[in-house]
Simulated assay, not measured.
Amino acid sequence: MEPAIEAVGLSRSFGEIPVVHNATLSVAPGEITALVGPNGSGKTTLMLMLATLLRPDRGTVRIAGRDAIEDPLAARTALGWMPDALGVWPTLTVRETLLAVCGMYGLRGAPAAGRTDELLAQTELVELAGQRSNTLSRGQKQRLSLARALVHRPRVLLLDEPASGLDPEARLTQRRMLTELAAEGVAILVTSHVLDELDEISTGVVFLRKGLTTAPEAVDAALQRGSRWRVRSLDERALETELARLGIPATSRASLSGTVHLIDAADEKAATAALSALVSAGVPVVEFAPASSTLEQAFVRLSHPGTEIAADPEATR
C-alpha cells in the first residue's frame, strides 16, 4: 500500500542553525502515528514542512501520492492541518468561521451549511456556534481548529498538540474521533506531550531528537524493553509475602486507590508470569498494569539513553 504521508531526508535550517536534518518517516492510510520528541527537537518545523507551509532545504515529501514540494496546492486538497495555536478571525462566530473555510474549499450554500452542522456536532460545538471565535477558551479553540481541518474530508491529518487545553471528557471525544477517522482510512500524524493518550490510539511512532528521526530498530527496541509494573491487591500482606517468596523486589507507595507495589519485569512475558504466579498463590490482585505508558517509557529511554523510569509512577506525568 502506498504511504499516505512519506518524507525522505527532510532538512531545514534557519540561518546557520539546523533544526531538522535528514528526517524520514512514513504513514500508511488508516494509521495513527505519534511524532514524539523532547521540546526543541524540531517537531513543529517538521510538521510545517509536511503541511506545505515551510519549504525544506533538502528532501522529498509526498502527501496522498502528490509531490508536496513541487505541487503544494495538490497536496493541500488531500490534507487537513491543525496547528498548535488556532489563528482566529475575531469578528466571526464559530459557525461563520467554518462556513468561511468551507468556501475556501469550494463548498457554498446548502452543502456548506450541511457540512458545518456535521462538524459542529462532531466536535461538540453546537452550543457555541453563535459565539465569536476570539472569546473561546483554549480547549474550545482546539475543537474549532480540528473542525476546520476536517472541512474538506481530508485523507491525511497533521495534528500538532490537538489535546492541549482539552478537559478529560473532550480528550475522550477527540480520541474516539481520531480512531473513527483512522478506521475510515485517514492517515494521521499527531504530536502531543500527553503520551499516555497517544499510547492508547497510536499504531506507530516516530521519535525525533535534535532534528533527527531515530532509526525504527532503535525505537522498536525501546518499546520492547523491560518496564516497571504497578500491582495492587485487596490483601497487602499476602501480596508482599508472595512477592518475597518469588524473589521479586518491590517498592510501595500510597495512592488514591490504595497501596501500590512497583515491580520490574524484563518483558511482557515475565510480567505475565509474575501475575500468573500471584493469582495461582491466591493473592487477590485487583490491578496489574504498566507504571507508565509504553510510549512514555520509550520516550525517556530514547531521550536519555541509560535512564530508566522513576520508581514513583507519578514522577513522569
Rank of each mutant, 00 (worst) to 15 (best):
M47Y: 07
L79C: 05
M47H: 09
V61K: 00
A51T: 05
D84G: 15
L73M: 14
R66Q: 14
A68C: 03
L79N: 03
G80P: 01
T52V: 06
L79R: 00
G65R: 06
P56R: 02
W81V: 13
L48S: 15
I69S: 03
D71F: 12
A75Y: 01
D84A: 13
M49F: 00
L48T: 13
R62Q: 13
D57K: 01
A75L: 03
D67L: 09
R62D: 07
P72Q: 12
A78K: 06
G59L: 03
A75E: 03
V61W: 00
D57I: 02
M82C: 12
L48Q: 15
M82H: 12
E70T: 15
A68I: 05
A68P: 05
L48H: 15
L73Y: 15
A64H: 12
P72S: 12
G80W: 00
E70R: 14
P83C: 08
L46H: 08
A51K: 04
A68Y: 01
L46M: 11
R62P: 06
V61I: 10
D67V: 10
T77Y: 10
M82S: 13
I63Y: 01
L46D: 07
I69V: 15
G80D: 01
T77G: 06
D67C: 09
L46A: 09
P72I: 11
G80M: 05
L46C: 09
R58Q: 15
A74Q: 15
A51Q: 05
P56A: 02
D84Q: 15
A64F: 13
I63C: 00
M49Q: 04
I69Q: 08
R66N: 10
D57P: 01
D71L: 11
R55Q: 11
T77S: 14
R55T: 13
R58N: 15
L54Y: 06
G59D: 03
